[in-house]
Amino acid sequence: MVKKKIFSSLILAFVLLLTYVPILILIIYSFTDSAFVGQWKGFSLALYLRLFSDREIMLIVKDTILLALAAASISTILGTVGAIGIYYSKKRTAKAMSAISNIPMINAEIITAVSLVLLFTMFFGGKSMFSLLSGHVVITIPFVVVSVIPKLKQMDDNLYEAALDLGATPLKALLTVVLPEIIPGIVSGFMLSVTLSLDDYIVTAFTKPNTFSTISTYVYESMNRPATSKLPELRALSAIIFFAILGVALLSAFRKNKQQGDSF
C-alpha cells in the first residue's frame, strides 16, 4: 500500500514537472536579452520593452482579445436563448437539437474548419472577418448550451408559471425569474467561450482573412520560420500570459476557499 502511494506520488511529481518545466524555462529566459533559450546574457527587461513597443504584436494581442469577446458575447446570447428553447421543447426535438448542438464539440476541429471554408467559399464569397467570427461562434456555442442546461434543470419550474399567473409577460418572466436562476451557467459559458476562442488555432487559421492574425496563428508562423521571427519577444508574451493566468487562478482559488470556509 505504501509502495503504491510512493509510486503514484512519483508519477504525479513527474507530470507536474513535465507540465511546468518548459513554461518556467521560457519565463526565466524572458528576463535576458538573448536570441535563444539557453543563452543567458544577464538580467534584462529588454524583451518586455521590445514587446510593448512592437506595434505588430500589440495589434495582434488586441485583435485576439476583441475577437474572443465578440465571439463569446454572440455565443452566450444565442446559446443561452437556444438552451432555454431546447430545455422546454418536446423531448424528441430537444434530443435532436442537443445532438446536433454537440457536433462541433465532439468533432475534430479540422473537420469543422474545412466544412466552414467550403460553406463560406460557396455561399458567402470567401474568407472574411464574418467567416472568422462565425467559426469562433460555432466552436464555442455548444459549451454555452451545456453550461446553461444544467442550471435550467436545477430550477424550480413553478417560478416561471407563478410569474405568468401574477401577470408578467413571458419576456418579463424570463428576464426577471429565469435569468437570475441560470446566470452562473451563463457566466461560466461566457468564460469558457473566451478561453476557447483565445486558445483556438485550427478554425482560426482556416477561416481568417489573410490580413488578420491572432496570437495562435502568429506564433505558429513564427515557430515555423524561426529565422525571421520575433521568438524572443514571444518569451516575454508567454511570461505575461502565464502571470496573468496565475493571478486569476489564485484569485479564484482564494474566493472558492473563502466560500467553502463560509459554508462551515
Binding site: P22, I23, I25, L26, Y29, D199, Y201, L231, I245
Partner: peptide, 14 residues
C-alpha cells in the same frame, strides 16, 4: 489556459 500554440512553442524551445 495558456494559449495552446504558445505552450507548444515553450515545449519546442525546451
Amino acid at each position: 489556459w495558456i494559449n495552446f500554440v504558445l505552450r507548444i512553442n515553450a515545449l519546442k524551445e525546451f
